[in-house]
């Protein structure tokens, strides 16, 4: 990691010099041009709900027409019908979104890991939940460069959505094909692999695989794939990644040390999902903290020391977070 910062909670604003920012491009306040939509809370109906393999479920929800179509990297909060054994809604990344008869149909790939997601897994088609969204800022897909999408495990789903968006003829940089790197512990954990193959082929993307045990693709991880791919690219890559934080840290480290832009989809335990409760802080990098301008940053997004995952994120640029302190 290029920038070590002092420990917990005490990073002092405006102090010290910006040590070794070396090859990192100069920091501007915001390079993000993700359109902002207004979230609403609305009832939704479970339209499809099935096993996707690797202990994951595929869920399709239909929300009313007033629900704005989410963008890749955005998330929604799913609230189970009450009375329910869990209190708070659960955040889920949107893995597909389309309009059908004016209504908004969204897909999600998720793992039942605890009480909330296990109760969700038991919702039959036809049953109702509530959805709140679209929330947060997604992947800035109009950034110049060759898009390299890097997924681990269930992180594959939002990035397939991104690959489709990139290839769409109406996209701002029109019909770009993506390099797609997908990794997991072993072949059994390459969740939704067949779907990924199909969908990425359909948008002329190129899919490469890595598993720790070499049971599919190269033996290694997505960083190894990235190392091999980077020198063969015809231009500067721009990375978009989704997966466990450990993998995102590694991608961020790789990108920062090479001055490559990387956008990482982060997670945090959340309560409100809308910036109100202040429950989902991620530590800002020292450079970001020093450049923090409270006049131009909506307070909903965070403060000098912490960015809120739900509003300023969940997708962050590598150089904006302090990866030493990300858990």
């Amino acid at each position: 990691m290029s920038r070590a910062e002092q420990g917990n909670g005490g990073a002092k604003a405006g102090a010290g010099v910006n040590g070794n920012a070396k090859s990192v491009a100069p920091l501007r306040v915001s390079t993000r041009t993700v359109p902002r939509t207004r979230w609403i809370q609305a009832p939704a109906i479970v339209r499809r709900h099935e096993d996707e393999g690797a202990a994951h479920r595929w869920l399709e929800l239909e929300a009313p027409g007033s629900f704005a179509t989410p963008l890749p990297g955005q998330f929604i909060q799913i609230l189970l019908a009450s009375p329910s054994a869990v209190l708070l809604p659960r955040p889920m990344s949107v893995a597909s979104a389309r309009r059908r008869g004016g209504r908004c149909v969204m897909g999600f790939l998720y793992a039942p890991v605890g009480p909330g997601t296990r109760l969700l897994a038991a919702c039959e088609p036809g049953s109702s939940v509530e959805v709140l969204g679209p929330l947060g800022r997604g992947f800035p897909l109009d950034q110049p460069g060759i898009p390299v999408l890097i997924a681990c495990w269930r992180g594959v789903a939002p990035l397939i959505f991104a690959a489709r968006s990139l290839a769409h003829p109406s996209a701002r940089r029109r019909g770009r094909r993506a390099e797609f790197l997908f990794g997991a512990r072993d072949r059994a954990h390459l969740v939704g692999l067949e779907k990924a193959r199909r969908e990425i082929a359909a948008v002329q993307g190129r899919l490469q695989l890595a598993t720790d045990d070499g049971s599919r693709g190269i033996r290694g991880n997505v960083i190894d794939l990235l190392e091999r791919l980077a020198p063969r690219l015809a231009g500067t890559p721009v990375l978009h990644a989704c997966g466990p934080h450990a993998m995102l840290k590694a991608v961020a480290g790789w990108a920062l040390s090479r001055g490559v832009r990387a956008h990482l989809a982060m997670e945090s335990v959340m309560a409100c999902g809308t910036g109100v409760c202040r429950g989902c802080p991620l530590p800002r990098s020292r450079a970001k903290s020093e450049a923090f301008d409270s006049a131009s940053t909506p307070s909903l997004w965070g403060n000098r020391e912490y960015a809120m995952c739900c509003t300023e994120g969940p997708v962050f640029e590598a150089r904006d977070l302090d990866w030493e302190r990300v858990e």
Binding site: N8, G9, V86, L88, C280, P281, P283, N303, R325
Partner: peptide, 18 residues
């Protein structure tokens, strides 16, 4: 003065509460 708040780990759901 503005306060930055506590480090991450600010929320945990418990039975019928948080």
């Amino acid at each position: 003065m503005p306060r930055a708040g506590n480090p991450a780990g600010r929320i945990a759901e418990t039975a019928a509460g948080m």
